[in-house]
C-alpha cells in the first residue's frame, strides 16, 4: 500500500475532474425512497467515481451477522470499490463484539456500529444518554481518546428497541401503544408472555426503561430469555410468547406481519449508526470516511427498514440490495 508519495497528482486530478463536472451543472439533489427505479443519478455530480479516487487505498471492512449489517457492509464495500479502492469484506462476524474485536485486533480497518452497543458494551457504561446526538458525540470522543477509533458522521436512521405482537392478537386486545401493553400486562398477567434476549433484560435501556416509563412490572415467570434471532418467529406464532422484543428497523416486523407497539412515552432510547475506522488508517486515508458519510447520508429510518425488508421479505441478496441503492441514489452510474 503506497499511501503517500504518488498521491498528490491524483488528488489534483480528482479536484479538476470534480470541478469540471460540477461546472457542467450536476446538482446535488438525492432522490429519496429505496424501492423506486434508477432515478436522476446518471448525469449528476454525485458519482463516487467522479468525486473520489481511492485507487491507492486497500481497506478491510467487517460486518456483523444480521441483515442490516450485511447490507451496510455491502454498501461500504461497493461504494469504496466504485471510488477505486481495493476492498476486502469479512461478513458474518458474530454479534455483538466480533467486528469490534476484529477492529481492535487490526484484522479489519472499519466496521459499522451502533452508538448504544459501543457505549454500553465497548466503553463499559451502564446508563446510556437519552439524546441520540449527545450519545453519538460521547461515543465518538471517548472511543477516539481511549481506543484510537474514529467515528464517521452518523447515518440519519435511528434504531432502537421495541415491543411487538402478532397482528390478530393486537387487534383482538386493542393493542396499539406500549401504554396499551402496560395495561394488558397488569390486567392479564397470565397472557403476558414475553420473549426477550439476554441483553434486553439486563440493560439499563432495556425492559427496565419500559417498566419505569409505563409504571408496570413484567412478571418474571412470564419472560422467556432466548436467542434474539428466533424471537420474531416465536412472537409471530404466539408460541411461546404473545410479545417479543424487536429492533425497530428489522425487516421481519413487516415480513411476519408483527404489530410494533408505539412508544408514546419515548421509553426506549434511539441509537445512531456510523462507521468506526481505525484512526491511523483514517488519517492516512481521509477520503474513506467521506465516501462512507456520503453514501449513508440519505438513509433515514424508513429507507433502512425498506432495505432490510427487501432482504427479509422479498428474499433478495444484501449485495443486490446495496447495489440497487447505490444506483438509485446516483452514486454509481
Amino acid at each position: 500500500m503506497q499511501r503517500t508519495s504518488n498521491r498528490l497528482p491524483w488528488v489534483a486530478l480528482v479536484a479538476v475532474l470534480t470541478l469540471g463536472v460540477s461546472a457542467c451543472g450536476g446538482d446535488e439533489t438525492s432522490p429519496g425512497g429505496g424501492g423506486g427505479g434508477p432515478t436522476g443519478g446518471g448525469g449528476g455530480g454525485d458519482l463516487l467515481s467522479d468525486q473520489f479516487d481511492l485507487s491507492d487505498v486497500e481497506i478491510r471492512i467487517g460486518s456483523k451477522d444480521f441483515t442490516e449489517q450485511l447490507i451496510l457492509g455491502q454498501l461500504a464495500k461497493q461504494a469504496l470499490e466504485a471510488a477505486g479502492a481495493t476492498v476486502e469484506l469479512t461478513e458474518n462476524l458474530p454479534s455483538p463484539a466480533g467486528a469490534r474485536d476484529a477492529l481492535l485486533a487490526g484484522e479489519v480497518d472499519a466496521a459499522w456500529e451502533y452508538t448504544g452497543t459501543a457505549y454500553i458494551n465497548y466503553l463499559q457504561h451502564d446508563t446510556p444518554i437519552d439524546d441520540p446526538t449527545e450519545q453519538y458525540e460521547a461515543v465518538r470522543d471517548e472511543d477516539l481518546e481511549q481506543n484510537n477509533i474514529f467515528w464517521t458522521e452518523p447515518a440519519p436512521f435511528d434504531d432502537t428497541y421495541g415491543l411487538a405482537t402478532r397482528r390478530d392478537f393486537a387487534d383482538e386486545n386493542g393493542l396499539e401503544t406500549l401504554a396499551d401493553v402496560a395495561s394488558f400486562v397488569e390486567e392479564n398477567p397470565d397472557q403476558a408472555t414475553l420473549c426477550l434476549d439476554s441483553t434486553f433484560g439486563s440493560r439499563d435501556d432495556g425492559l427496565v426503561r419500559f417498566e419505569d416509563a409505563y409504571g408496570v412490572t413484567w412478571p418474571d415467570d412470564q419472560q422467556t430469555v432466548q436467542e434474539f434471532a428466533i424471537i420474531y418467529q416465536a412472537t409471530a406464532d404466539g408460541d411461546p410468547c404473545n410479545f417479543g422484543e424487536v429492533f425497530t428497523t428489522d425487516g421481519r416486523i413487516q415480513s411476519l406481519d408483527l404489530a410494533l407497539m408505539e412508544d408514546v412515552e419515548s421509553a426506549f432510547i434511539s441509537y445512531l449508526s456510523a462507521v468506526q475506522i481505525n484512526n491511523d488508517f483514517n488519517e492516512a486515508n481521509p477520503d474513506v470516511a467521506s465516501v462512507l458519510e456520503a453514501i449513508s447520508a440519505p438513509i433515514d429510518e424508513a429507507l433502512m427498514t425498506a432495505l432490510n425488508a427487501q432482504v427479509d421479505v422479498d428474499g433478495e441478496f444484501p449485495e443486490d440490495v446495496a447495489a440497487q441503492y447505490l444506483e438509485d441514489q446516483g452514486f454509481v452510474g
Binding site: P96, I120, V225, I230
Partner: peptide, 20 residues
C-alpha cells in the same frame, strides 16, 4: 438451552458475552 429459552448457566455466559 439458554439459546432457546431453557435457562441454565448458559444464560450468564451468553448474556455476559453479548454485553462485554
Amino acid at each position: 438451552a439458554a439459546f432457546i429459552g431453557g435457562g441454565t448457566f448458559g444464560e450468564l455466559i451468553i448474556g455476559g458475552q453479548a454485553q462485554g
